[in-house]
């Protein structure tokens, strides 16, 4: 079962959706937050994965 939680960077507000992944950065759709590589950093504020807390803001994608 693929992951579908939505996470938000507490520094800049950027959103990571597990369902969508980050294909531009070779993170496939369905990649759980815990499986995002440790050297990944937030594309908007540059915070390291290990340096910041992502907060879970929802599940089942980003439905309005």
């Amino acid at each position: 079962m693929s992951a579908n939680k939505v996470w938000q960077c507490i520094t800049c507000g950027w959103i990571y959706s597990e369902a969508e992944g980050l294909p531009d950065e070779d993170i496939a759709p369905g990649t759980a937050w815990e499986d995002v590589p440790e050297d990944w950093c937030c594309p908007d504020c540059g915070m390291d994965k290990s340096d910041f807390t992502m907060v879970e803001v929802g599940s089942n994608g980003l439905g309005f």
Partner: peptide, 9 residues
Amino acid sequence: VNNPAWLTK
């Protein structure tokens, strides 16, 4: 403002 999920969409 305070609405990052919408902006992502």
